[in-house]
Nucleic acid binder design. Structure first.
Length: 419
RNA sequence: GCCGGCGUGGCAGAACGGUUAAUGCCUCCGCCUGCAAAGCGGAUGUCCGGGGGUUCGACUCCACCCGCCGGCGCCA
């Protein structure tokens, strides 16, 4: 397996800390709203990565955090007149429901920020002990000047990068909050520095340190998290005991765009997973999302989705008789996946496997990709089709055609035999 | 301004520096079909944003230019 890492900007062979085990951490959602299909892209990609690695015999511990304490949650809860935990739990459930709907089920463990407060406080305490953080009247801050490698991931030089977060009490504008003092309602905790709540970046490192230790293999997330979030994670974790690198492979997924612009909640140009699954089957959505490489931007259009639906239908139509294993096709599939998860190429080989009738491979790879490449037949459908055949045999075409019309409208592909 | 990425046929989207530049959709023709759809067979179509460099040879490497997107508040 070769993976591209944002840290080195090169594609390198995957070597893990433990020979047969992969520790994978992916930044999960902030649960204050429904997720959109841009999120789906990221989570589908890592779902496929984990499943593929497992198919090669690796044990994958896939950890994902749930950010359930955050400004947006506080504000949203206020707006809706419900408690923060009610809101967070609600959208956490909705998130998990969306993930389930899309067949995203490779995550080993979901970890909430709010159930890891002791770990967060402990980690902040150790950062203070090491002299890389300081306390002000507003909270505890990380001193970025103490971390030489700051900017390594994003390629930004420290002097040129200026945070827009203004806070008079900070020593340096680029310093970021580890603990924010104050009363934030329900989600406020006691700490050695006073009551308050954790900063955004510290939850991830507290969680990943608890389950993985200070070094692990792969950290994933959207491209937009590189700065400041992932930079901050590196600074925090590597400052603890100086282990470097905290993570060998930083994987960042490209954006799903709408009219050339990033799909995001703040731009309001997003399509929720909930809505998308009303129109498109999960198989089609996954197929569409995997049709381009995970690091490339991908245009979300109805045309693109429709195209994906047709392609998938085409594969199902040509994958009929089992002709046994297609050795070359299988090899091509594996090679594509191993080449920085080149799913577009892998899907091209699926086409070939379907054409060559390697039903076994289609089943197996379908599980990895979370897409069913084989035509499903249900009892009611075959009964209906039998009736049509009978009508056609009796040359009662009007009724037969009406049934066919209705079936097509319902999205069912009808394939007639010659009379 | 600084940093990162992208620019391939009508569309989406791939490609160890070296055969006719994947795959699918679209379009056209034929076969098949009760008629369609699906399937099958075939055809049209791009010389890879631009002009340079390196090389025996570049879509693939290097520098530059143009265009687009993103990060430097929040964001997968």
């Amino acid at each position: 397996m070769h993976l591209y890492s944002t840290l080195t900007k090169t594609t390198e062979p995957l070597t893990t800390l433990h020979p047969d085990r992969v520790y994978l951490f992916v930044c999960g959602p902030t649960v204050y709203d429904y997720s959109h299909i841009g999120h789906a892209r990221t989570y589908v990609v890592f779902d496929v990565l984990a499943k593929f690695l497992r198919s090669t015999g690796k044990e994958v511990f896939y950890l994902q955090n749930i950010t359930d304490v955050d400004d947006k949650i506080i504000n949203r809860a206020k707006e809706e007149g419900i408690s923060q935990s009610e809101l967070a739990r609600k959208f956490e459930r909705e998130y998990l429901r969306d993930m389930q709907a899309l067949g995203i089920n490779a995550v080993s463990y979901y970890a909430r920020a709010t159930t890891h407060i002791p770990e967060i406080i402990d980690q902040i305490g150790r950062l203070l002990d090491r002299g890389v953080a300081y306390v002000t009247e507003a909270g505890v801050y990380f001193n970025v000047d103490t971390f030489e490698r700051n900017g390594e991931l994003s390629g930004q030089e420290r002097a040129k990068r200026v945070s827009r977060v203004t806070d008079e009490s900070k020593h340096n504008p680029n310093d970021f909050a580890l603990w924010k003092l104050g009363e934030y309602g329900e989600y406020t905790w006691d700490s050695p520095w006073g009551r308050g709540r954790p900063g955004w970046h510290i939850e991830d490192t507290a969680i990943s340190e608890k389950y993985f230790g200070q070094q692990y293999d792969i950290h994933g997330g959207g491209l937009d998290l590189i700065f400041p979030h992932h930079e901050a994670e590196i600074a925090q974790m590597e400052s603890l005991e100086g282990k470097h690198p905290m993570v060998r492979y930083w994987m960042h997924t490209g954006f799903l765009t709408v009219n050339g612009e990033k799909m995001s909640k703040s731009l309001g140009n997003f399509i929720t997973i909930r809505d998308a699954t009303k129109t498109w089957k999960p198989d089609v959505l996954r197929y569409f999302l995997l049709l381009s490489h995970y690091r490339s931007p991908l245009q979300a259009t109805d045309e693109g989705l429709a195209n994906a639906a047709k392609r998938l239908e085409h594969i199902r139509a040509i994958a009929q008789e089992d002709m046994g294993p297609d050795i070359f096709g299988r090899k091509a599939f594996t090679e594509a996946m191993e080449n920085d998860l080149n799913t577009p190429m892998a899907l091209a080989t699926i086409q070939r496997l379907a054409a060559n009738g390697d039903i076994g491979a289609l089943k197996e790879y379908g599980k990895i990709l979370g897409i069913n490449f084989l035509r499903e037949t249900s009892a009611p459908l075959s009964v209906l089709q039998e009736i049509r055949e009978e009508l056609r045999a009796r040359k009662q075409f009007e009724v037969a055609d009406l049934i066919r019309e209705k079936m097509v409208e319902a999205g069912i592909t009808v394939k007639d035999r010659a009379l």
